[in-house]
């Protein structure tokens, strides 16, 4: 195997290992209970919530199969995961089906739509009435 290919395999294996360790860590640790889990700096400094606030708690609940609690902590994470999986699929899988779906999933309009959703969710979750309703 050539050097570039080997480097790619090692990098991929490293990232996969790190991802699995991270998932195991979030399965074991409940961010709600532990003081060591890092808080969001934006939330810490401003008191407002950023689009990703609640992701750690949502991930913990999701790994334990509590979809409803995960959705209450951060619904946007639950909506992001399918899109992230689709992007990973068309970017890293080299089959002709993946290549054919690539222009749709990576279309600039779709990606910018996702960015607009992030910013919209940022504003929406800080509106007083939405905050009261989600309130966890």
């Amino acid at each position: 195997m050539e050097a570039a290919g080997r480097k790619r395999v090692v990098l991929g294996a490293g990232i996969a290992l790190a991802a699995v360790l991270l998932l195991v860590f979030y399965y074991i640790t409940d961010p709600q209970e532990s003081v060591w889990m890092p808080q969001c700096m934006f939330h810490f400094l401003t008191g407002w919530e950023c689009p990703a606030c609640g992701n750690q708690r949502a991930l913990h609940q999701l790994l334990h199969g509590n979809l409803e609690m995960a959705f209450r902590y951060n619904p946007f994470l639950i909506l992001s995961i399918p899109y992230l999986c689709a992007v990973m699929y068309v970017s890293f899988v080299r089959t002709s089906r993946a290549v054919r779906w690539r222009p749709f999933v990576l279309h600039p309009c779709v990606v910018r739509g996702y960015v607009v959703l992030i910013i919209g969710w940022w504003i929406l979750r800080n509106l007083p009435f939405v905050r009261c309703r989600l309130g966890v």
């Binding site: 969001c40 934006f42 950023c50 689009p51 990703a52 606030c53 992701n55 994470l77 992001s80 899109y83 992230l84 992007v87 990973m88 970017s91 890293f92 690539r102 222009p103 990576l106 600039p108 990606v111 910018r112 996702y114 960015v115 992030i118 910013i119």
Partner: peptide, 27 residues
């Protein structure tokens, strides 16, 4: 793009959004 999205979702930073916008232009 995958890493730009991961960094935005995990790190919750405006820099990640800049990365996504640049990544969307490449192809």
């Amino acid at each position: 793009l995958p890493w730009a999205i991961v960094s935005t979702v995990l790190c919750c930073l405006p820099f990640g959004i800049v990365a996504i916008v640049y990544a969307s232009k490449v192809d």
